[in-house]
Design a protein around this nucleic acid. Structure first.
Lengths: 219, 219
DNA sequence: AAAGAGGCTGAACGTACGTTTAGTATTCTC
DNA sequence: GAGAATACTAAACGTACGTTCAGCCTCTTT
């Protein structure tokens, strides 16, 4: 990681101090290779500091992981802070735009954050589970409100529905490496991301079947 | 892993030899904790053999991983072999039943296989990517055939649809640890699994929206 | 019965890793 | 400007890990 001359653009944390460089580099390496796949020497080298400094600032490798986790969670909170109101109460366009804004504000770190989240889910960290639970409650809340408005068919399975929503939502997150393999580029690139969002909303609302075998498609 | 008296029921490989016990135990431990999270001594202890035997039979820990991977892939092939005909050509009940048969035939190893597959996908092993690609082609083939039969609305996004299918399919696989957390039991338990399968099929076909605001639900 | 081969053991080895420590440079405090 | 605290370095340390090796036991071959 290069030392910046001095912040030309928005930085999440200033990278002038060794302590912060260690944090950021560790996060990036953890995201890429997993906690066990990274050595303290790797981190030190990338952050251009000595190995000793890691333990000086963070006590241990495990302490560093905790610091990275806390930092990640803090960033994650920013998402929900910025997210005012409920998904299903706003016109779809607005939601896309508000998410886009947040994404744009941390655009450089976005892929890394995704990878880190992915890792957290894989490694089944306690806080990863907590995030999942929280996300789940959010989705279920949305569904309950949609339901109260009578916008969900009565036969739809209420137990699995929130999970199915989450699978669709997090699919791009968890499978992006493979999407990249097949499509040649990341599913997080803006146009693909929007298009997926639309496809996802359409599928959930209407499914894939034509309205009826005997009926002409209206319009 | 206990040494069986002698196979009371179907075994995937006989566990009488140390070589096979090592393979099976390694697979189970890798599935649980990941490759880096398991030591050769762990494996040796679980398989009740000496450490030396691992290298004697498999050359190295990496060699063992390859053997486990190959074994997993071979089992995976059995799935597609058994799976004759196309998903969309059979009545939904039959598909569920044929998958169930396969699942029943390896019922004991099923959760471990799922966890191992999960690891492979999330750890981005090369063969995991190959499996993904293959799975993807399978799904796309199904969609193409459905499409040819005119069973997909023309406005549906053909680019994302196969991915969305896969997200729904593999969601339970990738998130089961968290589903267990929320539901209190694994999503792979038979009744839950069937129910999810039905919910998934229903969502894909019809979506969640009632048919129309002014129309009564038919039947 | 002798010779060989393969399954298997357990101690020993080398090393990569996380951590500690002794020491230097820089900044802060009064 | 003296002294203390903080940021940081580089070498040394201890250990957990993957691997190697010499040898034993059991079975097969001739």
């Amino acid at each position: 990681m290069k030392r910046p001359p001095q912040k030309a653009k928005l930085e999440l944390v200033e990278t002038s101090s060794g302590k912060n460089r260690i944090l950021l580099c560790a996060m990036e390496l953890f995201a890429q290779r997993g906690f066990d796949g990274v050595t303290t020497r790797d981190i030190a080298a990338k952050a251009e500091v000595s190995v000793g400094l890691i333990n000086h600032h963070y006590g241990s490798k495990e302490g560093l992981r905790q610091a990275v986790d806390e930092y990640f969670i803090a960033q994650f909170e920013r998402f929900y802070e910025g997210e005012t109101g409920h998904v299903e109460d706003q016109p779809p366009g607005d939601l896309v735009r508000s998410v886009d804004q947040w994404v744009a504000s941390i655009t450089d770190e976005w892929p890394m954050f995704c990878r880190y989240f992915r890792r957290a889910l894989l490694e089944e960290t306690p806080w990863g589970a907590a995030l999942f639970k929280r996300y789940f409650d959010l989705v279920r809340g949305s569904i309950d409100r949609l339901d109260a408005q009578g916008r969900i068919r009565p036969e739809v399975d209420r137990l699995w529905l929130p999970f199915l929503f989450m699978f669709l939502e997090t699919g791009t997150l968890l499978m992006d490496p493979y999407i990249k393999l097949i499509l040649g580029r990341s599913g997080f690139e803006e146009d693909l991301w929007h298009r997926r969002y639309r496809a996802y909303g359409d599928l959930i609302a209407k499914g894939i079947s034509p309205r009826g075998p005997a009926r002409e498609e209206p319009r």
